[in-house]
Design a binder for these strands. Structure first.
Lengths: 211, 211
DNA sequence: TTAACAAAGTAACAAAAGTTACATTGCTAG
DNA sequence: CTAGCAATGTAACTTTTGTTACTTTGTTAA
């Protein structure tokens, strides 16, 4: 079953031989929407390969404030956890399934072993790291240079792309939480967007008209 | 000469055989304070190994606003440039020598070649990436959760650690630039810190008393 | 010694974001 | 069909940050 899933989603990415190896040692898991995959402080000794769905990665400081960083999608892996299993260091991020998702987990020991054996794995690891660094840079960009209204609009349009649906099922409170601001601020700005005909507001639901 | 430098700074990190390889293909460079090493959009096909000094890595958006991300020090490499040489992607960051520094440059092709051959290189690359991701996370933390006064104080104390000197030779304008805020805001907060006996202000110079 | 200039100080105001408090609305379980 | 409740709307206010404009202070080169 894993073999079929891999061939479906990773056929161009990995060599046949590597797909066989992953089939041997990988474990497949379906996760439900809102399921917690990885919490802060976890010692995570598996490499996740996302087959389908979306995982929201967020970061929390010592005071308990939280901010959403980025989403993992099909073809992604969570490089930020690569450090968790190897050394004594523990996860600094949280991963929650945004929608029902399918994941294959690979034991962390294979990370290095396969770096030696498979060119496609070397590319995958390096690419994954580079993509993740880019995403972090984008998050920094957003925080450093954008005002709240721009950040919020980016949040909405990014989510539309991830969910592949112009209707977002979420609450103002949840958005505020993801952006580390207050519900009132979000409601105020969303109302502005609605007046500007960029979105349409409903209870528990936002239609994004322009994106 | 490179061999001696490497043995001095990277003896525990790299296997002897790898040090020989680096000696063969690496080029040594001394850079002066304020020298630009890597600019936005550059196609950078070298891996830098920092031997001494400090390189300030900063990020600029399309509008020209800039923000300092972190410093590279002895033992560090700039993983964020690993992507620049390989694909068509170009540098999204800028690197400027904060003080006189010594660097060895390695051709980017060696990145993958040595992943296969040397365990110490695999560890170095993975560790470097993980460290960089951590630093990025810290930058996000600072931007998302801290008020300007805390951010500024962190800026000062971080710099004291990097420079190994409690006296910082800088201007309010330069700090404002690094933090993407205005000079007036920085001056105002610094004056507060001085009143709180945390620092002492001079022209072009700040003494950090508590850190 | 002093003109010139960069750096720093500061007041006054504007804009953005956060907070409090309460009203209104829409959904759902009984 | 309605009580209860979570979600949303909104006003009023505070705090933080940014901006403008002008003054004062060191430093340096002529």
């Amino acid at each position: 079953m894993i073999r079929e899933k891999l061939k479906e989603y990773y056929n161009v990415v990995f060599e046949d031989e590597l797909i066989e190896e992953i089939t041997k040692v990988g474990t497949f898991k379906k996760v439900r929407e809102n399921e917690l995959l990885l919490d802060l402080g976890d010692k995570f000794d598996k490499i996740p390969l996302i087959l389908s769905g979306a995982i929201k990665i967020s970061h929390e400081n010592t005071k308990g404030d939280e901010i959403a960083l980025y989403f993992l999608e099909r073809g992604d892996t969570c490089t930020i956890t690569f450090g968790c299993g190897l050394q004594t260091s523990k996860s600094k991020v949280r991963g929650v399934a945004e929608v029902d998702s399918e994941i294959i987990f690979i034991p962390i020991e294979k990370l290095e072993e396969w770096l030696v054996k498979y060119k496609s794995w070397r590319n995958f690891v390096i690419d994954s790291y580079n993509i993740r660094l880019s995403e972090m840079l984008e998050a920094i960009d957003t925080l450093a240079f954008m005002k709240m209204d721009q950040r919020l609009y980016k949040y909405l349009t990014d989510k539309v792309k991830i969910m592949r649906d112009t209707t977002l099922f979420t609450t103002h409170q949840e958005i505020a939480h993801d952006m580390n601001t207050s519900r009132v601020v979000v409601s105020r700005l969303l109302k502005q967007f609605e007046n500007d005909k960029k979105i349409k507001l409903h209870r528990n639901r936002i239609e994004v008209l322009e994106y």
